[in-house]
Simulated scan of single mutants.
Amino acid sequence: MTVGETVETAPRRRPGRAARFGLIITAILLLLFGVPWWTLVAAGNHWPGPVFAVGTILVVALAAAFPVLMFTGHGPHHRDGAARAADTLLGVVWVLFTWSVLSLVLRAVLAVAGVADPDRSRIVTAVVALVALVLLLWGYAEAMRVSRVRRVEVTLPRLGAGLDGLRVVLLTDTHYGPIDRARWSRGVVEVVNSLEPDIVAHTGDIADGEVSQRREQAAPLGDVRAKLARVYVTGNHEYFSGAQRWVEHMASLGWEALHNRHVVVTRGGSSLIVAGVDDRTAAGSGVPGHHMDHDAALRGTDPSLPILLLAHQPQQLTGAVAHGIDLQLSGHTHGGQMWPFHYLVRLDQPVLQGLSHHGERTHLYTSRGTGFWGPPFRIFAPSEITLLTLRAG
């Protein structure tokens, strides 16, 4: 506990906070479902009475069912059937919402061109429905395919000549979950091994669910081959799904769980510190001994050696810069996963994806993620298996 922290012996009742949360959720649901309803069912379509009634009842039923499915699927019990339904519905309604908003431009153009209702509104409805269908089919295919390899070179001035050309493969955000992707997982491992990496790093969010639920999907990770090290750190989703059990399970698969600790790899007479810190949400998770601690991760290291740091979120960059890290590897953002969600991601994270430079020394590479969370769609944000080749300066 740090100075200034207080501990409540009994939780305080905060009915005002609960009410505000309920109002926010209600407002979000009204927008997400209400805007597509207005575009597809209401507006100036002038559908026959039965069509309007059925459309309205369907939208209301889905809006009411969504929070129940989401809680049942992603709550403490992880009911996979409910999770699949909730996640798919979230993806569909997000795409319909996005293109319903954008369709206001088309509606205005048609109005200027003299197209009156109901023709104008029905044209807009048809376009929105068609665009949504195409994007959802394409996005599903993008989400379910084995990720493509993204190749990046990073020059680290402090890297020794013996480590020039070191090949680091980054996996992150695999999110093994309610859709069985054991076959996909095996495909990812085949690609990783074909790259002949020196180091393979997984920067967290392995799964949504307990080890007992996702064991088969995660099993191929035990077949990953690396010449020098296989290293892993926790992501925020581990703290919904038994973080310590995942740390122990990854260790049983032969991975070094960098739970605020480090290892040193050496080749050709040159050495590299490979360190890892827990996710920034770990301290508030209630899991004993889990918190982000750069000092502990680097304790006893030679200050002259370069440092590769694994940290799940780009936002953990502040600690990396303060500790003189040469390269931080992160995930978490998914590159936005479903456009234009990336605008919301940027409100929380300093970087969306790719290689960036911070402070005097620190490079940050942020992966778009190897898998996906929730909606089984990736739209304008492809997944990746990252091959980083480190070059000596």
Rank of each mutant, 00 (worst) to 15 (best):
E190G: 11
D223G: 11
L156M: 08
H202L: 14
V233P: 05
R245W: 02
V168E: 07
A226F: 04
V211W: 05
A201V: 03
W246S: 08
A243R: 01
R186Q: 13
V211H: 11
V211L: 07
V247S: 06
V192Y: 03
Y239Q: 08
R215Q: 13
E210F: 14
I206F: 15
R186C: 11
L159R: 01
D208T: 04
A257S: 06
G162R: 02
R183Q: 15
V200N: 03
N193I: 02
G235T: 02
A226V: 01
G162E: 10
F240M: 14
G160L: 04
D198W: 14
D208E: 11
P197T: 07
V231I: 07
L170C: 09
E216H: 11
M250W: 10
G209S: 03
E248K: 12
E216Q: 04
S241I: 04
F240Y: 14
D164T: 03
L171G: 05
V189D: 08
V192T: 01
G204F: 10
D164M: 08
E196P: 04
V200I: 07
E196N: 13
R158S: 10
V200S: 05
V191P: 02
L195N: 01
G222N: 03
P220A: 03
R245D: 09
A201M: 06
P178V: 13
L221C: 08
L253E: 12
D208K: 15
I199M: 05
T203M: 11
R261M: 06
R245Y: 09
V200T: 00
M250L: 13
P197V: 12
G254N: 03
A201F: 10
H175Y: 08
E248G: 05
N236M: 10
R225T: 00
N260D: 13
T203P: 02
R186P: 06
V188A: 04
N260G: 07
V233M: 09
